[in-house]
Simulated scan of single mutants.
Amino acid sequence: MAEQIGSEYDSDLPDDDYKGLMELAGTMNAKYSKVDVQRLSQNILKSLFPDFILGNFGWMFAKPFPIFSAKMNAGATFVAGTWLMGECEINDCKVDGDIDDEKSGINQGLLVKRCRFLEESGCASVCVNSCKIPTQNFFMEDMKLPLTMEPNYETYECQFSFGLTPTEEDERQATDTPCLSRCPSAGGLRRKHTSPQSQCQSSVCPQMQNR
């Protein structure tokens, strides 16, 4: 992440890996527009996978075997994502309407019981632009597998539905979520990321003044 955002904080990051991650996420969201944050976050996800997987997963698995691919990715996210998001469980989920098998949604969802990333950031804007939208875009554009993520800003749960394409209504609700009451930026990131002049011409976000 430090490499992607060109962070001058890299050499001074705390020993705790997760605290360092959250500091870099805050830096990225304060420094860039929401479009750039989404692009950089997607690039970070892509950097975690070998090129042969990204270049071939769609035609080898996602297109011919969508149900199997969805279940496989739910399992892989369960194994790899627990450190980032906290306790998870594989569950049933909704799928796109063109998938006829009534059992296709079984065991291809993932429920994050209380998202550590959201709770630690305390910021809906960081959640939407650093996680939800770029992760959905990564799976749809790079893995060729639809994914809808539905964060709950009251319980901090998040439902991953592999095999379900996000709707415009889903995305509108996510981007229209009011700033959380405990947001460390006091709504600064949400105002910056929704302003017509969101190309980060302002001073450092209040979130970063508390570092």
Rank of each mutant, 00 (worst) to 15 (best):
A124Y: 04
E102A: 14
D51V: 15
S121I: 01
P66M: 06
E119G: 10
T77E: 08
G55M: 10
R114G: 13
I53S: 03
K94N: 13
K113T: 09
M85I: 08
L110N: 01
T77K: 04
N73A: 03
W59G: 08
P64F: 04
E102Y: 12
K63P: 11
S125A: 15
P50R: 03
Q108T: 07
V126Q: 12
V112Q: 02
S121P: 02
A80P: 00
D100F: 15
L54W: 06
C115Y: 02
A70R: 05
W83M: 08
E102T: 15
G58I: 06
E119L: 03
T82S: 07
D51G: 10
E119H: 07
M85L: 12
C115D: 09
R116W: 06
C123E: 06
C88D: 11
G75V: 00
F78G: 00
N56W: 12
E89V: 14
F57L: 03
C93V: 08
C123L: 05
D51I: 15
V126D: 08
A62G: 06
R116T: 05
N56I: 07
F68D: 05
G105K: 04
N107C: 10
T82Y: 06
G122V: 00
N107W: 09
F68N: 03
K103E: 14
F49T: 12
V79E: 04
D98W: 10
A62N: 10
S125Y: 08
I53Q: 09
F52Q: 11
G55I: 09
E102P: 14
K103T: 07
D100S: 15
V95S: 10
F57S: 00
I53C: 01
N73F: 02
E87Q: 13
M60K: 13
K113E: 10
G81T: 01
V95C: 10
A76Q: 05
S69M: 07
G86D: 00
L111D: 12
K113R: 13
G105V: 02
C115F: 00
M85T: 11
L84A: 03
P64D: 01
W59F: 14
E87N: 07
G75F: 01
G97P: 00
G81V: 01
C88G: 12
A74W: 12
G109R: 01
N73Q: 07
A62T: 04
A70S: 14
K113D: 02
V126K: 02
D92E: 11
A70L: 04
V112K: 06
P50F: 14
Q108W: 06
D100N: 15
C93G: 06
K103D: 14
F78Q: 05
N73S: 07
I53K: 07
C127M: 04
D51R: 15
W59C: 14
G86A: 00
K71Q: 15
C115R: 05
G86H: 02
I106M: 13
G122M: 01
N56K: 14
A76T: 08
G122T: 02
P50C: 13
E89C: 13
D96F: 01
S125P: 06
K94F: 14
V126P: 04
L110M: 00
Q108Y: 05
D101K: 15
I99E: 08
G55N: 14
E89Y: 08
F49E: 09
L54T: 08
L84R: 05
S104K: 11
K94P: 14
A70D: 09
